[in-house]
């Protein structure tokens, strides 16, 4: 396993573990709260949509 694969695996495991923890402990903010924080205003929503659009263009329209 390469260094990159190891680090990405650790990061992915961290995301998964924290998603589970926030699902189990309701007092902690979940992923929905993070997303909702951005969707609370036009500015946040535009930032989120800009990131979404850029990610789509990069992943589907350019050589990753």
């Amino acid at each position: 396993m390469t260094l990159g694969a190891v680090v990405w695996t650790v990061i992915a495991a961290g995301w998964l573990a924290w998603l589970v923890v926030t699902r189990c402990i309701r007092t902690l903010p979940g992923i929905g709260s993070v997303v909702n924080a951005f969707l609370g205003s036009w500015l946040g929503r535009v930032l989120a949509l800009a990131a979404w659009a850029e990610a789509g263009w990069h992943v589907f329209g350019q050589r990753p």
């Binding site: 390469t2 990159g4 990610a55 589907f60 050589r63 990753p64």
Partner: peptide
């Protein structure tokens, strides 16, 4: 040996089905 996140996604979008599924999710 240090792939970027988009290269990891690229491994999926190299396949037609992977590209279609990921596009639907997007």
């Amino acid at each position: 040996d240090l792939p970027t996140l988009s290269r990891l996604f690229g491994a999926v979008t190299d396949h037609d089905w992977g590209r279609a599924l990921l596009f639907a999710a997007w």
